[in-house]
C-alpha cells in the first residue's frame, strides 16, 4: 500500500535526525527536537528532494519550519 505524504515525510525526518518516527508530532521543529540543527536541516532538504523527486526553492526551504509545514510544502509541489 502506498504511504501517505505525512508518513513518508515522517520516515525521512526519522532517518535523517536519528529519532523514532513516533516521536515526530505535527509541531515537531528545530525548537522541539535537539537533533534538528541547521546542518541536519540541509540534509533533510536533500533527503526530501530525493524521496519525492522534487526541487525546493529558497523560499520553500525557509518555510520548512516544522513537520506540518514540510508536509504542506511537499503537497503544494506535488499538487496533492
Amino acid at each position: 500500500m502506498t504511504q501517505s505524504v505525512p508518513d513518508r515525510v515522517r520516515n525521512v525526518l526519522s532517518a535523517v535526525l536519528g529519532v523514532p518516527a513516533d516521536s515526530i508530532g505535527e509541531f515537531a521543529s528545530p525548537q522541539t527536537l535537539e537533533a534538528w540543527d541547521s546542518l541536519k536541516h540541509m540534509n533533510l532538504v536533500l533527503a526530501l528532494e530525493e524521496e519525492f523527486g522534487v526541487s525546493f526553492s529558497d523560499e520553500q526551504m525557509l518555510e520548512m519550519l516544522n513537520f506540518k509545514l514540510i508536509v504542506a510544502t511537499v503537497q503544494e509541489i506535488l499538487g496533492a
Binding site: 509541531f27 519550519l65 506540518k68 509545514l69 503544494e76
Partner: peptide, 15 residues
C-alpha cells in the same frame, strides 16, 4: 491561505 496561517503559527513562540 492555510499555509500562511501555518507559517504564522510556526513563527509564534506559543505555536
Amino acid at each position: 491561505p492555510q499555509k500562511a496561517k501555518m507559517l504564522i503559527e510556526a513563527r509564534t513562540p506559543l505555536q
